[in-house]
Design a protein around this nucleic acid. Structure first.
Lengths: 265, 265
DNA sequence: GAATGTTGTCCGAAATATCGGACTTGCCGT
DNA sequence: ACGGCAAGTCCGATATTTCGGACAACATTC
């Protein structure tokens, strides 16, 4: 295998499995795009075929079609493909069409510019947390964006705000058990997690340190809808050794921005 | 017709026309997405069917699939569909994967924040100009983004830089005749256009006023590759009555940013 | 330089996705 | 209340797309 890509799941087409291997082109394409998004790197066609369980001849056929439409681009001359400009155009149309996100973009950009630190706008999708907007700061100590990548709720500061409308037992049944296990093997205690959530609601913000990454602190503030439910968060991702005074003033910035995005009380 | 959408072209599937109306699902989907991007507004399914020349039952079937994959979203409860979050995720992956664009994002954001005015990053696609990145200023006097929308080269300030590696006769044969006709019916004189281009190359920037829009001025500076060819531009879109001193300092900002994005001489 | 593996193209067969049209439901104006 | 129109669902037939496998062109290894 010339590329370090591992088969992830031998994705079974999409939706329901079909008895024989045959699938619609559109379902193959959806699987292909999801696969590229998971890998987040230009990928060779043969690897796509293997890892998505799509016949090789079919992938070649579809990739040709998609490259022509600029949904995909051939990269580097090393026979890899990745997303093309059309995805950016359609994605921009989406961002502009959603009121809250359009406003959040201004806030996130402003926060990142003001502070020089990475600022994000996050929401839930199902029982997972994900980054919707990411504005790298001047420091930019994390290069690869994680936009649209699902992450377990307990791994994140924002997650502690996004479930704060649920009762403790609802929270624990909402979040899958395995999501309390951090990537480094540590396990987040359920009662501590619930305690954090109560604390966060009281404070109007949340801070976590060294959760996913040993040297990173996250600061987050809640964006609330008319019913005071937290529908999104806005946050900073900063080095853990940032001074307390600086952190305090960043929290104030966050709360002000979050307030602007929230439906007025 | 309950919606003000006009049939644009009765799009003939994609690629080559097929004798009978039958087409692949993937080609139908590509036509559908391009259609939404052209309209840039949530659209009813029946209208999509009519305007793309796709059978109604087929569109319903495909839209269901795409909504499930979050490529599309049902909007408003008024039965319209538009792009969904997946497009944003894939589009972000694209932006992050292209070196020049990733760097340009920082510059454009910075310029918009500094000046409070709308800043853009533009490139050619075929013989058309298009906006790749758009950061609205605080003023934000133009709401709808035009990201990924093809515009005739002569209509734009940046266009006068993007063709400056061609000889005069090459330029005139590169740009379609009808592209010299402005939306308001005026026609751009070819020799004036060529003169502008020469001037722009000499100055290292270009300014246009009241081209597409009577009250708008555009300032643009060239991003050049190793062979000194202009491969992109970075620009401001400002009210035409902006003071000269302010414009001058904005031009300096532009040139500095464009220089940073260019391959060093 | 033979053996082995990888990339990309091509082709015919068969399984099936697309399509047309019928049908239901709901809305609107008269 | 009624007729006309649009939205959305459903179903069977058939034109077409997917798929497997063969093949050629290169690259890599021993």
């Amino acid at each position: 295998m010339a590329n370090g890509v591992m088969a992830e799941k031998k994705a079974p087409a999409r939706g329901e499995e079909r008895a024989n291997g045959r699938a619609r082109g559109i379902d193959r394409v959806i699987a292909l795009m999801e696969h590229l998004h998971r890998l987040r790197t230009p990928t060779r066609i043969a690897d796509i075929a293997r890892d998505t369980g799509t016949p090789r001849s079919t992938v070649y056929e579809l990739v040709n079609t998609l490259v022509e439409a600029r949904w995909l681009e051939l990269r580097d001359d090393d026979g890899t493909v990745y997303f093309g400009p059309a995805m950016h155009y359609y994605g921009s149309d989406y961002l502009d069409s959603v009121d809250l996100i359009r406003k959040a973009r201004v806030e996130v950009a402003h926060l990142a510019e003001m502070s020089g630190e990475t600022s994000q706008f996050c929401m839930l999708e199902g029982d997972k947390y994900l980054v919707v907007l990411n504005e790298p700061g001047r420091r930019m100590f994390r290069i690869s964006s994680e936009i649209g990548i699902k992450v377990p709720i307990p791994w994140t500061a924002s997650g502690r705000l996004l479930v704060d409308h649920l009762k403790p037992d609802e929270i624990l049944s909402f979040i899958p058990d395995e999501d309390f296990l951090l990537p480094d093997g540590r396990r987040i205690a359920r009662d501590e997690f619930l305690h954090d959530i109560g604390q966060a609601r009281e404070n109007g913000y949340v801070r976590t340190t060294a959760l996913v990454d040993r040297f990173t602190t996250c600061l987050a503030a809640p964006v609330r809808d008319a019913s005071r439910q937290c529908i999104a968060t806005i946050c900073f991702v900063i080095p853990a050794d940032t001074g307390e005074a600086e952190q305090k003033s960043m929290i104030d910035l966050l709360i002000a921005s979050a307030e602007k995005l929230s439906v007025p009380r």
